[in-house]
Nucleic acid binder design. Sequence first.
DNA 1: CTGAAAGCGCTAACAT
DNA 2: ATGTTAGCGCTTTCAG
Lengths: 356, 356
Amino acid sequence: MGVSLRDIAERAGVSLATVSNVVNGYRPVGERTRQRVQQAVDELGYSPNLSARHLRRGRTGLIALAIPELNNPYFAELAEIAIREAAGLGYTLVMENTAADREAELLLLDGSRRHIIDGLIFSPVRIGREEVLARTADSPLVLIGEGVHDVPHDHIAIDNVAASQAAIQHLVEIGRRRIAFIGAADGGDRQSAHLRLRGYREALAAAGLPYRPRLVAGTPEFGRRDGRTAMRDLLALGEPPDAVFGYNDLVAVGALRALTEAGHRVPEDVAVIGIDDIEEGLFSTPTLTTIAPDKEAIGRLAVRRLVARIEGAEVTDALTVQTPFRLIRRESTCGRRGGNSGAVAPPFRYRPPDGS
Amino acid sequence: MGVSLRDIAERAGVSLATVSNVVNGYRPVGERTRQRVQQAVDELGYSPNLSARHLRRGRTGLIALAIPELNNPYFAELAEIAIREAAGLGYTLVMENTAADREAELLLLDGSRRHIIDGLIFSPVRIGREEVLARTADSPLVLIGEGVHDVPHDHIAIDNVAASQAAIQHLVEIGRRRIAFIGAADGGDRQSAHLRLRGYREALAAAGLPYRPRLVAGTPEFGRRDGRTAMRDLLALGEPPDAVFGYNDLVAVGALRALTEAGHRVPEDVAVIGIDDIEEGLFSTPTLTTIAPDKEAIGRLAVRRLVARIEGAEVTDALTVQTPFRLIRRESTCGRRGGNSGAVAPPFRYRPPDGS
DNA sequence: CTGAAAGCGCTAACAT
DNA sequence: ATGTTAGCGCTTTCAG
């Protein structure tokens, strides 16, 4: 094994506790003593054994971020932010991919892994309020996304209904009337798909447009392939749509591809919009108009709330934060070519998050 | 705290050691005893405290995967595979994003984090052989990618020179003569960029084509933006190229975008090929021809080798494995439209990896 | 086949 | 300001 506190203590001629205090700064230490200890630490190359520390403290220093699709760039970007934030606070973040699987989600809530992590940031899609309430593990839980509401845990998400409305409103403003939605949850269990569908319907109503069920396409999952397949089906309709709202950017990219393959012009024949603002949408042909959530805010806030809870801030009630989003207009709805960065509209709606 | 071995032991009226043996199966246990213990475990809901186990065993059950760009879908896909494989072997994988930063890479090799992980899978890009040899940490290390060679560690990678050659050869076969390369390492420290450049040069020579330094574009990093910028520069040349080989798919996608913006047709005017086979290339317009490494093999092998070392297989020498790759022809070099999955060429070169 | 007991390295309560 | 000491929960000899 490596160098332990005891080795340092002997070398420096002091007690274990003193070394610990020099290393961690729990208690003040005399200047001369500190120097002797520091020297020993440097010479022997000490670094603490985390297993021991964690055993003693009852914490592991690990937090988990559980997401339904690691392959979705949106989550990859979110993960990157969260990892950075966690590291800054002295925690190591491990990623758990539930693959949108119900069993995996249940296991995460109460499985044996729970003993290895101090807290969990969770984006559930296949379980509901009941399951979260039934959880027995007592480590802090922060929810992200719209999967579950009204549970006694911190919760961070954008307002999906409002986001959808913003998307549809934009399509209406550029003169579209037959607006399709791709990515309604087929199985019926992805809450955010329902909310985005609701926003779609409400925005249509507000614009005085009829709701046509045939223009709503369900998808088994929410990747590029799903978007492409659904778009093909939509095109097979007698009268195809003149605009498409994708559940997310991945679905929208798939729709884009199907349209191109079928020889339709975007946005002239069909306009396309998504949600997530993944970098890919800035480079697709045409570039993709999107609703951009504030990933930075979501990732950082989630980690900060979680760490605050872990470190004992039981004071506040569970709080729900709506993070801001904005509409980014690009070629897929505007028809401009050659722009190298989508024009940024002023925030459609901005609710400044409550700092941790 | 939770339920401990002691709780179970008391409940079942046996000793600690027996419970441990029932739970872990280290030693045989009498049938009746085992049942009593099992019952207690079920009733009380025991699951082992990993910190304690790790302290005792001197291992943490954590392995790290350190990559230079989490945002690159290639690495995200690789990570997903590795996480799955690690979980199957009873390990938790944590991701470390070095962001291609030299300091971050050095820290990983010898920093304090090393005490928290049992082993490291590392894709270095800014450090070289010397630094790896100078490493003092003694936990197992598996290298992936071409960053560092000839060190006493297991190493898994594709043959970058051969991969480049395959790419160039393909471009030559479809009649291209002015072939550019985007993604030479500007700073000069990304080894794989050098190797891919070498393959490019050798393949040009083999085809009897001249090497034109002006057709080689360096990039500061290797993302979509870099590809786009470099492509623009290339187009500003008096006589632009008729084909482009991107360091990776991301760079190629950026080049694709620059070409489209500038009004060039792909592949008629300029053919484009990349390396990595990210899903995005299957949905871009045009779809992207690419050299596809066997990510599944790389990810699984890396984890398996590492775990084998951790668990004491000191027997074999460090082994270097070349994983297979293949050329996938899509629209960006073939001009076919409407195909929904790129035609798959037979493997250009296949070296079956040595199973762990 | 089962039990008793010695720590793994660290922190924190209690002394001095 | 510093030292002593009792465990955290587990694995693993060594005895029976």
